[in-house]
Design a protein around this nucleic acid. Structure first.
Lengths: 221, 221
DNA sequence: CTGTCAATTAATATCGATATTTTATAAGGG
DNA sequence: CCCTTATAAAATATCGATATTAATTGACAG
């Protein structure tokens, strides 16, 4: 039998572990936008070698969370209002497309997955679980999961994360308060289960625009 | 004074050079879809170390040209009809959006860049220059360049390359012949210069669908 | 034969050290 | 006093070697 040294260190590889941790630090704002990411610092922070760190950072450039400038290293991707608004616009366009495709081929298996994802999210929200973020993303991805368009889903997942980053950054600032969005989720779920593509798409986009406009207004101040 | 050993070896870094060469080999089909990409082989082929090769491959995963499986290396991204058709669908959706955004804010500076790109492409086509591919991409990107949506443009550039890959792969097969597309480009240019967004978008999408359907039919056979 | 398991081979992932390049610092000339 | 140029420091990029993991082979039992 193999006793595992640390439940958290059940990493598939140093690179993958570094990737997850760095990604998390950027999404939460722990590594602030624009910050220079020095190999040596990260190496000692993550307690690993330079190669895994470099490779993890290279992978994070795919996610547009890290910028790479040849011969002069890496930095956490900068943020701007324009960038946020582009993310919002792209999300509305791509998720609408994906949701409609998902609904078009809806079957009971997908329906059940969706109900399940929604249930888990609600439950996580009630007990103030820190697993809510994960469940929230899972619900939104479940909506699109039946589109059978892997690249489109990948883009949506990427944009989702970028959006969450802005939300987290705003939450660090002053006078930030969360909107209650549980009923919006409920409505989106119900419209989807009724296969009402137009309604579901409208509700989903409104859901994004509402949160988005609030965050956008925060960025002026 | 520093004499440069080889004008082609004016690479900014070994990683960047490897990135460009590997990318080219995958786009041309020189490295066929699904092929295992062994570090040691590529290392000797590119005459560089393992680190630049690994890092270049990591970067190529952003472009969806390379797949990475943790602990078991890299391989050239596989191809399929479904994948091709998703690329085509996404291109039509994203480029239409980008083109309309580009036209919406059209100014004379952008207009001049576009005319220039078109001229260069025509010229390269006439003298059978091998720089045509580059000029062709430049023209299509010039159409979108005024959208002021960097992420959207990046997606379009990515999808353009993936599409070219399929074209190159088809060109290796039997009974492949190129369509004449010069007049289609001319029409797109003229509609854009007239700021006729609806017409330009329709022509652009038809341009893609025509080539796409031809390639798609080849893939059955 | 066929499937399982051990031993071997091959490939990946990682480390530690070094060479190159960039950035910061300081000195000298306009 | 500012700008240019040399020097020193820091950081990146790269190499070569090693440890770890996966794939392969072959022997053995069912």
């Amino acid at each position: 039998m193999n006793v595992m040294p640390n439940p958290l260190t059940k990493d598939r590889s140093a690179t993958h572990g570094s990737y997850l941790r760095l990604r998390d630090m950027i999404l939460t704002g722990d590594l602030p936008p624009g910050q220079k990411l020095k190999i040596e610092e990260l190496r000692s922070l993550l307690d690993t070698g330079a190669s895994p760190v470099r490779e993890a950072l290279s992978l994070l450039t795919s996610d547009m969370l890290v910028e790479r400038i040849d011969q002069r290293g890496f930095r956490a991707a900068p943020v701007s209002k324009a960038n946020f608004e582009e993310i919002l616009a792209l999300r509305c366009m791509l998720e609408e497309k994906a949701l409609r495709a998902s609904l078009a081929g809806a079957d009971s298996s997908w329906e059940e997955q969706l109900v399940l994802a929604h249930h888990r999210m609600k439950k996580a929200a009630q007990k103030g679980d820190n697993g809510f973020e994960e469940a929230h993303k899972a619900f939104h991805m479940a909506l699109l999961a039946n589109a059978n368009m892997p690249m489109l889903e990948r883009y949506c997942a990427q944009l989702y994360d970028l959006n969450i980053r802005y939300r987290n950054l705003a939450a660090r600032g002053p006078r930030y308060r969360t909107r209650s969005v549980q009923n919006e989720h409920q409505e989106i779920l119900e419209a989807s289960l009724k296969r009402d593509a137009d309604l579901a798409a409208r509700l989903l986009i409104d859901h994004y625009r509402n949160t988005g406009n609030y965050l956008s207004s925060q960025m002026d101040a």
